[in-house]
C-alpha cells in the first residue's frame, strides 16, 4: 500500500501493476504457487489472493483517475493562450448604403402588398413629361433640368414615367413601387448630382382616398424613423397629382424649434405625393370615374443621408472603401 501511495505518474502505476499483477508479478506468483498448497487451504488462499488482487485493482483505478485528472490539468495549463490576440475573420463585403436603405424600403412595401416595377432610364419625352401633364412649354419643366438625347428622347428626370408604363399595361388593382436612377443636369456638389435615385409608388383601385395615401405614408415614416416620428402633410403642387402634398417629419435634431439640420424650419421634407390626376388615369385608359389612386416619390439619397448623417452626396458615388466599410 505504501508503494501505491508513492506513485505520481501513469508510468509508475504501470510498473506497479506489472510488479504485482503482471505475468511474473508477485500476486500472480502466489496464485501460481497454489499447486504446493494443501487442497484444504487452496480455496482460502485463492480467495485471499483474489481479494487482494481486487483491492489492488480498485486502488489502482482510483489512482489512475486521479493521475489522469492531474495530467489533464497540467496539459490545460500548458495550452494556455493569449485570448486577447485577434480572432481569425472571414472577409465579408457589404452592400452599398443606398442599397441597404432601398432594401429596407422595398421590404416595407412588399409587406404591404406592393410589387416592384421597372422602366427604362433612357425614356421618351412622352412618358417623362407629357403623359404626366407636363406638355412641351410647361413652366414646371424648367425646374427639372433635363438631359436630352434627341428631341423626344431624354434621360428620365423622375421615376414617375414608370407609373404611366405600368398603367398602360396593367389594369387596377395596381400597387407598385418603382425604384431607379434618375438624371438632372445639375453640376456635382455636396447636395447635387446629375444622377440620383428615386422610389416611385403607385396605388390605383376603386375607392382609394387621400386618407389612404396619408395612412400608407405614415406607416412608411414610422417604419423608417421610428414609431414616435411626427409627420405633417403640407399642400404642394405636382402636375400629375391633384391634390398634391409634401410630407415632412419633425426635425429629430431640434424637435421642431429650428436648427441647422432643418435649416431652421423645424421640419424636414421627406417625399412628395398626391392623388393621381384624373387626366393621367384617363390617358392610360383607366376611367377616373371608377378608379382613383395615389402616387408618391421618395429621394433615396436624401433618406440615406438622413439615416446615417452623411453630409455630402458625392461620397455615394466615389465609392471610397473606407466609406463603404462603415455601413
Amino acid at each position: 500500500m505504501d508503494a501505491l501511495a508513492c506513485i505520481t505518474s501513469k508510468q509508475q502505476l504501470e510498473s506497479f501493476r506489472v510488479e504485482f499483477l503482471g505475468k511474473k508479478g508477485r500476486l500472480t506468483q502466489v496464485l501460481r504457487g497454489m499447486g504446493s498448497v494443501s487442497p484444504e487451504q487452496r480455496p482460502i488462499i485463492g480467495q485471499l489472493a483474489n481479494d487482494i488482487r481486487l483491492f489492488i485493482e480498485e486502488q489502482m483505478d482510483t489512482l489512475l483517475l486521479q493521475l489522469e485528472a492531474n495530467e489533464l490539468e497540467v496539459k490545460l495549463l500548458q495550452e494556455k493562450i493569449d485570448v486577447t490576440m485577434p480572432g481569425k475573420r472571414q472577409r465579408i463585403g457589404k452592400k452599398h448604403p443606398l442599397t441597404t436603405v432601398l432594401d429596407e424600403l422595398v421590404d416595407i412595401f412588399i409587406g404591404m402588398g406592393f410589387t416592384i416595377a421597372e422602366g427604362p432610364e433612357v425614356e421618351l419625352d412622352y412618358y417623362n413629361f407629357e403623359a404626366l401633364n407636363l406638355p412641351k412649354g410647361h413652366p414646371a419643366r424648367d425646374t427639372q433640368d433635363t438631359f436630352y438625347i434627341s428631341d423626344n428622347v431624354l434621360l428620365r428626370t423622375q421615376t414617375s414615367p414608370v407609373q404611366i408604363r405600368v398603367m398602360e399595361k396593367k389594369k387596377p388593382p395596381i400597387k407598385i413601387i418603382a425604384p431607379g436612377r434618375v438624371y438632372r443636369s445639375d453640376t456635382v456638389d455636396a447636395t447635387h448630382s446629375p444622377l440620383f435615385h428615386q422610389i416611385e409608388g403607385l396605388v390605383v383601385d376603386k375607392g382609394i382616398t387621400m386618407a389612404d395615401l396619408k395612412g400608407t405614408l405614415e406607416i412608411l415614416c414610422k417604419k423608417l424613423y421610428g414609431n414616435d416620428t411626427k409627420v405633417r402633410f403640407r399642400p404642394h403642387h405636382f402636375p400629375f397629382t391633384e391634390p398634391s402634398c409634401e410630407l415632412d417629419i419633425l426635425c429629430p435634431s431640434c424637435n421642431g424649434s429650428g436648427c441647422r439640420v432643418c435649416k431652421s424650419e423645424g421640419w424636414i421634407e421627406i417625399l412628395g405625393a398626391g392623388m393621381v390626376h384624373p387626366r393621367v388615369l384617363e390617358r392610360c385608359g383607366i376611367n377616373p370615374e371608377i378608379y382613383s389612386g395615389f402616387a408618391f416619390g421618395i429621394g433615396l439619397e436624401r433618406i440615406t443621408m438622413r439615416r446615417y448623417g452623411i453630409y455630402d452626396l458625392r461620397l455615394f458615388f466615389e465609392n471610397d472603401l473606407r466609406f463603404l466599410q462603415q455601413f
Binding site: F109, I110, G111, M112, G113, F114, T115, P172, P173, K175, V203, V204, D205, K206, G207, I208, T209, M210, A211, D212, K214, G215, T216, E218, I219, R232, F233, R234, P235, E242, P243, S244, C245, M275
Partner: peptide
C-alpha cells in the same frame, strides 16, 4: 377637392389603410 382640402387642413384628413383589393407583394 384640393382647394377644399387645403383650407380644411390636410392634417384633419384622417389616416386609413385601404389600398384596394388585397394584392400579393
Amino acid at each position: 377637392a384640393e382647394e377644399v382640402a387645403r383650407i380644411y387642413g390636410y392634417d384633419k384628413i384622417p389616416s386609413s389603410l385601404n389600398t384596394g383589393e388585397t394584392t400579393l407583394g
